[in-house]
Amino acid sequence: MSNKEPGLISLEYKNVRAGKELDTTWTYKKFQENFRVVIVRCENYEMEFDLIGIHPFLANAFRRIMISDVPTMAIEKVHIYNNTSVMQDEILAHRLGLVPLKADPGLFEFKESETSEATAQDTLQFELKMKCSKNKENKDSSRHDDIYKNHHVLSKHIKWMPIGNQAELHKEENIRPIHDDISLLKMRPGHEIDLQMFAVKGTGRDHAKFSPVATAFYRLLPDIKLTRTVEGEQAERLQKCFSPGVIALRKSEGKCVAVVNDSRYDMCSRNVFKHDDLKDSVVMGRIEDHFIFTIESVGNLKSHQIFKEAINILKKKCKTLLDEIDISN
């Protein structure tokens, strides 16, 4: 993989572009030849894949769209009918807003305007009603769980209240908070909350709670080359300077020799530079058009869906732009 000349070279304090500039001209043919997608890991909410042969501008566009343009549902308005807990209404509402909701945003529409009437197509309604009381059965215990009832409000206590025909369209298990154990509020006997929440579709640009990803980012594929043979104790030290698995020690002629095993997971800590005797033995660089993407989904959407959605949004944006240009012409 790393036979290519690296595009960026790390010197101790600086990233230096090696030789030629990255070719910015774009032709369909060249793109077809070079572009590859390699999915390395794809779990439900986290995925890692490589985009190879793509320009950083484009890679960055995907990242940016994933963070702030892919829509999800989140609680936007809270009607507080009663709140005698210690938490202030605004803070409680803010906390509720940040609870990620499991609801396919594709099945809903954006609300026309902030003031427009809530409809079954654009709004989900939830309810949270709880009253804390003393537990008379367990008087001797000092654990809060034993002496109080309903004292800890968690995200699982949020209940969906279908509007209109929503009950028929959606299953109950599909419309709810993703995590059950998000701590929202602690109460004591006599405290009571009674709230109604309204979730709408929105984007991360408006508020971070609408962002489908915890984070989406990429890094360039590292390229590590040894310039000379490093043996013995030096080799062991060299191994420690890199992330685990990057440098392997190989026995040859009774001696330990350091070889580059897999530079992919090196986190570029550049700790070789700490050792004066080792710092000239290695050249570290990065392949400039090899992006290792990581998408950590919050849970509303699967990670690969988010990426697909991002591509669609980019397409739509391009189309809008082209249409605009057409009109102006």
Binding site: P56, N60, R64, F217, R219, C268, S269
Partner: peptide, 24 residues
């Protein structure tokens, strides 16, 4: 450095605007 971070506390950053690595 034990945790794989640079011993001087300096990390490799990528610009969020251009998508290219920062020069320092």
């Amino acid at each position: 450095s034990k945790h794989g971070f640079n011993y001087q506390g300096k990390d490799f950053f990528t610009s969020g605007i251009t998508g290219e690595p920062l020069e320092a």
